[in-house]
């Protein structure tokens, strides 16, 4: 039985369709990333999966439990790390964890020692009595994670987990997710708009305008493009686009004023283009496809073209 089964999930806000019929599954012990620009439907999907919102139609099963009719059973097995902190800044680290434990029926000395052990493991052992508001952003994030793990969930949901983390802290965080999956067999589902973070997932679902445009391992998705991706900046992009099409008979996409094409042997192709149209090419880059190339290939848009810095969209 898979950890998560999502079947034809739709969600409308009034008449606007935030999710338009989404289907995918997440296997046990998998790290699954939902990648997409803000406004793509990630937050809506996250709210539904974390039992905070009902879908307009469609089914979700978590470890075989129906999300709509057995939400209590689903909640027991769910650990959630929200994008906005869910810690009480006026309480200490330990107090936050204690309150959380009480909600899951844990209490007393057993709860305290379980919380202490988890905090030690996360390197927060000496900050247990500090007020959360006095911790740095990275440490608050780790406290948040400790809180979500306290009741030993089987499925961990993380909404934009690396927001506000510096690269070092982000790497630590990712390593810890790997550890959780290896040691505790936790299934991890996260949302992200950061390509590097998606690269680290076992499988990625790309969400664009409420539709899942691709699902697969990052390498498999890139494989589909095949060969190299060549990007050309030109004096006259439209003109050159036509000329390259006529001369080489290949598909040339114009994305944000640059020409993009997928070629089996990129280095040879670059030389041929530069020789064929001297003076017209301003600069050329080529390389193995990235998830960004996959995204462009599937949607015709650059990943970060629509003002995607910050904000949480819906």
């Amino acid at each position: 039985m898979p950890a998560v089964e999502v079947e034809n999930l739709r969600r409308l806000y009034g008449t606007r369709e935030a999710l338009g019929g989404i289907t995918f599954t997440v296997s046990r012990r998998e790290i699954f990333g939902l990648l997409g620009p803000n406004g793509g439907g990630k937050t809506t999907l996250f709210k539904i999966l974390s039992t905070l919102m009902r879908p307009t139609s469609g089914n979700v099963r978590v470890f075989g439990h129906d999300l709509a009719s057995e939400s209590h059973a689903v909640r027991r097995r769910l650990g959630v790390v929200f994008q906005h902190p869910s810690l009480d800044p006026k309480l200490t680290v330990m107090e936050n964890l204690q309150h959380h434990g009480h909600l899951y029926g844990l209490w007393g000395r057993a709860l305290r020692s379980q919380a202490q052990a988890l905090l030690n493991r996360l390197g927060l052992g000496d900050r247990v009595s500090d007020l959360v508001e006095t911790l740095s952003g990275g440490l608050q994030r780790r406290t948040e994670l400790a809180k979500a793990l306290l009741h030993r969930p089987d499925l961990l949901l993380l909404d934009e987990p690396s927001t506000g983390l510096d690269p070092g802290a982000r790497r630590d965080f990712d390593d810890y997710l790997d550890y959780l999956r290896e040691q505790d067999g936790v299934t991890i589902l996260l949302t992200t708009h950061i390509l590097e973070e998606a690269e680290r997932c076992d499988r990625v679902g790309i969400l664009q305008q409420g539709k899942l445009v691709a699902v697969g391992a990052p390498d498999d998705l890139k494989e589909k493009i095949g060969g190299d991706v060549v990007v050309i900046h030109a004096q006259d992009p439209e003109g050159l686009q036509t000329k390259i099409r006529e001369r080489f008979g290949c598909e040339v996409a114009l994305v944000d004023g640059t020409l993009r094409m997928e070629r089996p042997r990129g280095h040879e192709f670059v030389r041929e283009v530069v020789d064929a149209f001297p003076g017209e090419v301003r600069s050329v880059t080529f390389g193995k496809p990235t998830l960004e190339d996959v995204f462009i290939h599937l949607t015709g848009h650059r990943f970060l073209s629509e003002g995607t810095a910050g904000g949480d969209g819906s």
């Binding site: 974390s50 039992t51 905070l52 769910l78 929200f82 906005h84 309150h99 959380h100 899951y104």
Partner: peptide, 14 residues
């Protein structure tokens, strides 16, 4: 409940 402590309470089996 939008961006604070209650978020965690609402996803708990309570």
């Amino acid at each position: 409940r939008r961006e604070g402590f209650l978020q965690g309470v609402l996803v708990a089996p309570v």
